[in-house]
């Protein structure tokens, strides 16, 4: 089948998509966007978290056809060429990246959390951060530095215009 959707603001059209393929497979293997990761491919680890029409989803659980005509946002779209998004900067500065395989999914989940709390004019509490990231597994860090990074990003983004 042919799949047409918008990814990171660009319209993509791909042919010969097999009906059994996931959005994750299409992003990684047919669109040249391997940033979203394939750690479990069963919706347990969150490493493939992407925005679908602005809502974070596990791309491995979305059938490719379900993305038809919709807007997808991946880690590759968080910042422009040569730039870093405040969440990306915070992860680097806080030491929240070791092997980095969970990082793309965590960045999207964090971006979503920080945006939502900023829209409400506040910074997320620790318990709220833990709840928001509970679907993203990390095996390297023990999560402490990820929490540091989210707090840092929330502080910095709170100062920006909404």
């Amino acid at each position: 089948m042919r799949l047409t959707c918008t990814v990171n603001g660009d319209r993509h059209e791909v042919d010969d998509v097999w009906e059994g393929e996931s959005l994750l497979y299409v992003l990684r293997e047919r669109m040249g966007l391997p940033g979203s990761k394939n750690a479990c491919e069963q919706g347990e680890c969150g490493s493939c978290t992407v925005y679908l029409d602005g809502v974070p989803v596990c791309a491995c659980l979305v059938a490719a056809g379900q993305a038809q005509g919709r807007e997808v946002g991946t880690v590759e779209g968080l910042a422009g060429p040569g730039e870093l998004h405040p969440v990306q900067e915070a992860f680097l500065e806080a030491g929240a990246v070791q092997c980095g395989f969970c990082t793309p999914g965590l960045l999207v989940a964090t971006d979503d959390l920080v945006r939502r709390s900023r829209a409400e004019g506040r910074r997320p509490a620790d318990a709220e951060i833990r709840e928001a990231l509970a679907g993203n597994l990390c095996r390297c860090t023990g999560y402490e530095k990820i929490l540091d990074a989210v707090r840092l990003a929330a502080d910095r983004m709170a100062g920006e215009a909404r």
């Binding site: 966007l33 391997p34 880690v75 968080l78 910042a79 990306q88 680097l92 980095g100 990082t103 960045l107």
Partner: peptide, 23 residues
């Protein structure tokens, strides 16, 4: 020093080539 990883920018941009990304 708390030096930062040389591969960190690639990793947060989703551009670091893991073995499963090779093509």
């Amino acid at each position: 020093d708390d030096a930062q990883r040389p591969d960190g920018v690639l990793k947060v941009r989703g551009e670091f080539a893991y073995a499963s990304d090779l093509w």
